[in-house]
Nucleic acid binder design. Structure first.
Lengths: 110, 110
DNA sequence: TGATTATGCAACCGTTCGGTTGCGTGTCAA
DNA sequence: TTGACACGCAACCGAACGGTTGCATAATCA
């Protein structure tokens, strides 16, 4: 039902825990699940679920190394969103905000 | 519990319907609720709920005009995310993707 | 005034989400 | 070979989500 491929990325980014995981992988790439569980305040299985969501959004690429699974960050989908989607709201439109503020202040009854 | 002010923005962007509403407001700013309901495939109340989420994320600013409510797009929070958060995953890191691909291809067993 | 229009409010409902517990499987090391 | 370690799988649970229906309220117009 959902054709937009970037939808998974948006949904994956919607959770603060998952954003934290991305931050941690950015700080140190290729960490193991056990390692990523530290200071997350939740069980290993919960973290594994979050990582799975990130994997399905292609934000994290897992590499099996013997009995452990190294998680690698893939920033490409985020850049894609920044370029394709957020780029639409370019800085030129930010001028509209000033206009809006002026309108709000000059027309207090709404 | 959630201190991050940008969390609401991420969550608001997580729904494709809400992203569509932002797109429509980008195409034509200051639309009424009734207008925004057209071709959304859901009831007015559902659209109103989505708009409320966008308002609480400061992505949409409503202005009452008599009995109707004009919805104005505020791209600032999106730019904020693009600058503050997505900016961390700068293009320099995209080189890591090539390295990762090489690693995956050169080490097929994972 | 009275009908119509634009919106708000609230209860309700099925599904998804974030998290847990419990158990199974494969890998490494003594 | 045995035990510990890293991980996967699945059932379960409460809360949040996306959407509906029904009714109330305020502004406009004939």
């Amino acid at each position: 039902m959902e054709a937009d491929p970037s939808d998974k990325v948006f949904k994956a980014l919607a959770d603060p825990g998952r954003r934290l995981l991305l931050d941690r992988l950015r700080a140190e790439d290729g960490q193991t699940l056990r390692r990523l569980c530290e200071d997350m305040g939740m069980t290993r299985q919960a973290v594994a679920k979050h990582l799975r969501v990130l994997e399905e959004a292609s934000l994290v690429v897992p590499i099996r190394r013997g009995r452990e699974k190294l998680h690698h960050l893939n920033p490409a989908p985020i850049q894609e969103i920044a370029d394709r989607w957020i780029g639409r709201f370019d800085r030129g439109r930010l001028r509209a905000l000033a206009d809006l503020k002026a309108k709000l202040e000059g027309d207090p009854d709404g």
